[in-house]
Measured scan of single mutants.
Amino acid sequence: MASDGVVVEIGKVTGSVGTTVEIPVYFRGVPSKGIANCDFVFRYDPNVLEIIGIDPGDIIVDPNPTKSFDTAIYPDRKIIVFLFAEDSGTGAYAITKDGVFAKIRATVKSSAPGYITFDEVGGFADNDLVEQKVSFIDGGVNVGNATPTKGATPTNTATPTK
């Protein structure tokens, strides 16, 4: 695992066909100046998982989280898009600690492993708008004895992609 920078880890949970599971997305290594904004994309298989919603985690402190935390689910493109932009203008609602960034709610549709993997990152910046190093650890849903650990090695991303 990367020793510096922010680590975004997609949790690994267990479920069975027809059940709804909650998959946490963790941030670790949050910089001392916090995270003022970030955007990134995960990939998944809508034939295996139906993403039914995404909720902000406990490290989102904006009293009205829909102003700073936004997501979009595109089953036709097989992606989930995340956007966080601190909304106070003063840094008061920045992410300042490690913990759960988001909770992905999904219904298991198939007995195949439900991988959720890193696809791309736009950027991560602290309260001074300084770009942060970030790496990703894939996860998803274990169905029966299947284990979604494909790509469990962190993917280092030093520069934003478009």
Rank of each mutant, 00 (worst) to 15 (best):
161 T>L: 08
25 V>D: 01
106 A>V: 13
88 S>P: 02
59 I>G: 12
77 R>D: 04
58 D>W: 11
103 K>I: 11
80 I>V: 04
64 N>M: 08
115 Y>V: 11
39 D>Q: 01
98 D>Y: 10
109 K>S: 08
76 D>M: 12
53 G>K: 09
89 G>H: 01
106 A>L: 10
101 F>A: 07
123 G>D: 00
41 V>G: 00
152 A>R: 11
122 G>V: 00
26 Y>N: 14
56 P>I: 05
80 I>C: 07
153 T>E: 12
56 P>V: 11
156 N>Y: 11
20 T>F: 15
12 K>L: 05
42 F>S: 07
35 I>N: 13
15 G>L: 07
101 F>H: 06
124 F>N: 00
103 K>L: 11
145 N>H: 13
51 I>K: 08
72 A>S: 01
151 G>Y: 13
119 D>F: 06
22 E>R: 14
48 V>Q: 10
110 S>Y: 04
157 T>V: 09
123 G>N: 00
100 V>E: 12
58 D>Y: 06
123 G>R: 00
110 S>T: 11
142 N>G: 08
159 T>M: 10
145 N>I: 14
14 T>V: 15
155 T>Q: 14
104 I>P: 06
108 V>N: 08
30 V>N: 15
72 A>G: 02
105 R>F: 04
69 F>N: 01
150 K>I: 08
38 C>N: 14
112 A>Y: 04
110 S>P: 12
77 R>C: 01
154 P>W: 10
42 F>L: 07
21 V>N: 15
132 Q>T: 09
26 Y>S: 12
155 T>D: 06
64 N>R: 07
97 K>S: 11
24 P>R: 05
144 G>P: 12
148 P>M: 12
132 Q>G: 02
162 K>N: 05
158 A>L: 10
5 G>P: 05
69 F>K: 01
47 N>S: 07
141 V>W: 10
134 V>A: 08
4 D>Y: 07
160 P>W: 05
26 Y>G: 04
76 D>N: 02
110 S>R: 13
70 D>M: 15
141 V>I: 14
20 T>K: 14
154 P>I: 06
122 G>S: 00
15 G>I: 10
161 T>P: 09
73 I>R: 10
43 R>G: 11
73 I>S: 04
37 N>L: 00
78 K>F: 02
45 D>P: 11
115 Y>E: 06
145 N>Y: 13
34 G>S: 05
142 N>S: 12
60 I>E: 15
82 F>V: 02
37 N>G: 15
2 A>P: 08
12 K>C: 05
129 L>D: 00
147 T>Q: 08
130 V>C: 09
33 K>Q: 03
151 G>K: 14
93 Y>Q: 14
86 E>H: 01
93 Y>H: 14
88 S>W: 15
147 T>N: 12
137 I>G: 09
97 K>I: 14
106 A>K: 05
148 P>F: 02
147 T>W: 07
145 N>L: 11
129 L>N: 02
114 G>A: 08
130 V>P: 00
30 V>K: 08
138 D>S: 11
126 D>R: 02
126 D>Q: 02
75 P>I: 02
77 R>I: 02
13 V>C: 04
30 V>P: 10
52 I>E: 12
146 A>C: 09
11 G>C: 13
43 R>I: 15
73 I>V: 07
144 G>V: 10
149 T>K: 10
154 P>H: 08
118 F>K: 12
52 I>G: 06
22 E>N: 07
136 F>K: 04
109 K>D: 15
94 A>C: 11
136 F>R: 09
91 G>Q: 04
144 G>M: 10
149 T>F: 11
107 T>E: 12
156 N>L: 11
24 P>W: 09
57 G>N: 15
69 F>A: 06
50 E>G: 08
113 P>H: 04
37 N>W: 00
133 K>Y: 06
115 Y>I: 07
39 D>S: 01
161 T>K: 12
93 Y>T: 14
70 D>P: 03
4 D>W: 05
89 G>D: 01
99 G>T: 10
117 T>E: 04
20 T>N: 07
101 F>D: 04
1 M>R: 06
153 T>V: 14
72 A>V: 01
55 D>P: 10
114 G>L: 07
146 A>G: 07
127 N>W: 01
156 N>E: 12
110 S>W: 11
50 E>F: 09
104 I>C: 09
42 F>M: 03
132 Q>P: 03
45 D>N: 09
34 G>T: 06
85 A>I: 13
120 E>H: 01
149 T>C: 11
87 D>E: 05
3 S>V: 03
5 G>F: 06
38 C>H: 00
8 V>A: 05
115 Y>C: 06
78 K>S: 11
98 D>H: 08
63 P>R: 12
116 I>M: 03
75 P>S: 07
51 I>C: 05
73 I>T: 08
73 I>N: 07
112 A>Q: 11
56 P>K: 08
17 V>C: 05
152 A>P: 12
159 T>C: 13
124 F>V: 02
105 R>H: 13
158 A>C: 13
27 F>N: 15
39 D>G: 00
39 D>A: 01
106 A>F: 12
129 L>V: 06
4 D>S: 04
52 I>K: 04
41 V>N: 00
46 P>W: 11
95 I>W: 01
29 G>L: 05
43 R>N: 15
155 T>Y: 09
9 E>I: 08
40 F>E: 14
133 K>V: 11
67 K>E: 04
158 A>Y: 13
1 M>V: 13
122 G>R: 00
25 V>I: 09
12 K>M: 14
156 N>F: 13
139 G>I: 02
119 D>A: 12
82 F>R: 00
34 G>L: 06
96 T>L: 08
9 E>W: 14
36 A>L: 07
156 N>T: 10
25 V>F: 06
106 A>M: 08
75 P>R: 02
53 G>Q: 05
59 I>T: 13
36 A>G: 13
21 V>Q: 05
68 S>T: 07
15 G>E: 13
41 V>T: 01
135 S>F: 06
155 T>R: 09
56 P>N: 05
15 G>P: 09
48 V>C: 05
64 N>L: 07
8 V>Q: 03
133 K>Q: 06
12 K>N: 04
40 F>N: 03
92 A>W: 15
133 K>R: 11
156 N>C: 14
140 G>I: 14
18 G>D: 08
127 N>D: 06
78 K>N: 03
31 P>Q: 09
28 R>K: 11
48 V>R: 06
114 G>P: 06
153 T>I: 08
154 P>F: 10
31 P>N: 05
139 G>Q: 11
35 I>G: 02
125 A>I: 00
78 K>E: 15
24 P>M: 04
13 V>D: 05
1 M>I: 13
2 A>G: 04
45 D>S: 09
39 D>F: 01
87 D>A: 15
152 A>W: 04
70 D>G: 15
28 R>H: 07
106 A>N: 05
140 G>R: 13
22 E>W: 15
138 D>K: 13
127 N>P: 01
31 P>K: 15
104 I>G: 06
159 T>S: 13
153 T>W: 15
73 I>D: 03
90 T>M: 09
123 G>V: 02
74 Y>T: 00
143 V>A: 12
110 S>K: 15
59 I>K: 14
64 N>G: 02
137 I>E: 11
93 Y>S: 13
28 R>F: 11
87 D>S: 15
102 A>K: 14
99 G>R: 13
114 G>C: 06
135 S>Y: 12
119 D>I: 05
76 D>K: 01
106 A>S: 12
11 G>E: 09
118 F>L: 06
33 K>E: 02
45 D>R: 05
96 T>W: 10
14 T>C: 14
112 A>G: 04
79 I>A: 01
145 N>M: 07
112 A>S: 08
30 V>Q: 15
72 A>C: 01
153 T>P: 12
75 P>A: 06
136 F>T: 03
9 E>R: 08
143 V>R: 09
120 E>W: 01
36 A>C: 05
46 P>Y: 06
133 K>W: 13
129 L>I: 14
69 F>M: 03
57 G>K: 14
72 A>H: 00
63 P>V: 11
74 Y>K: 00
19 T>Y: 10
91 G>R: 08
22 E>A: 06
83 L>A: 00
8 V>M: 02
25 V>N: 09
16 S>M: 15
126 D>L: 02
78 K>C: 04
37 N>K: 01
83 L>S: 01
76 D>V: 01
137 I>A: 14
73 I>Q: 08
58 D>M: 06
102 A>P: 00
76 D>Q: 04
123 G>H: 00
28 R>S: 12
57 G>L: 13
97 K>A: 11
143 V>Y: 11
